[in-house]
Computed example of a mutant assay.
Amino acid sequence: MTAIRGEDAERPRWPSRGLPARVLAVLVPVELTAVVLVVTDVVRLPWDRATGMLALGALGLAALGALHTEMASGIDRVRRRGAQVTYFDLSTVWTFAAALLLPPGVAGLVVVAVYGHLWWRVWRPAGAKLYRHVYTTATVVLAAMAASVIVSSDSLTAAAGLGGASQVVGYLSLLLAMAVYGLVNQVLVATALALTSPHRPDWRRLMGDWDDHVLEGATLCLAVLAALAVQRHVLLALLVLPPLLVLHRAVLIRQLEERANTDAKTNLLTAVAWRGRAHRALTRARRQRGASAVPSRC
Results as ranks from 00 to 15, higher is better:
residue 275 R to N: 09
residue 182 G to S: 14
residue 24 L to W: 05
residue 60 G to S: 08
residue 268 L to R: 09
residue 68 H to F: 15
residue 257 E to N: 14
residue 51 T to Q: 11
residue 82 G to D: 06
residue 121 R to A: 06
residue 234 V to P: 05
residue 267 N to R: 15
residue 4 I to E: 05
residue 267 N to G: 10
residue 291 A to V: 14
residue 34 A to R: 01
residue 233 H to G: 05
residue 155 S to N: 10
residue 129 K to Y: 11
residue 258 E to V: 01
residue 94 W to V: 01
residue 103 P to G: 00
residue 20 P to A: 12
residue 35 V to G: 03
residue 91 S to R: 15
residue 234 V to M: 11
residue 75 I to R: 13
residue 119 W to C: 05
residue 86 T to C: 06
residue 145 M to L: 04
residue 193 L to K: 08
residue 50 A to M: 10
residue 25 A to T: 04
residue 191 T to H: 04
residue 245 L to Y: 11
residue 148 S to E: 03
residue 268 L to V: 04
residue 207 M to D: 07
residue 125 P to S: 02
residue 127 G to K: 06
residue 218 A to K: 08
residue 71 M to K: 11
residue 44 R to P: 04
residue 159 A to H: 05
residue 218 A to E: 12
residue 110 V to Y: 06
residue 198 P to G: 05
residue 149 V to Y: 15
residue 165 A to L: 13
residue 64 L to W: 13
residue 180 V to I: 04
residue 210 W to A: 12
residue 203 W to E: 06
residue 45 L to M: 13
residue 186 Q to G: 10
residue 169 V to F: 13
residue 33 T to P: 12
residue 272 V to K: 05
residue 292 S to Y: 12
residue 192 A to T: 07
residue 8 D to W: 09
residue 155 S to T: 10
residue 222 L to W: 05
residue 132 R to I: 03
residue 147 A to E: 03
residue 178 M to G: 10
residue 169 V to R: 15
residue 224 V to W: 01
residue 84 Q to H: 15
residue 103 P to W: 08
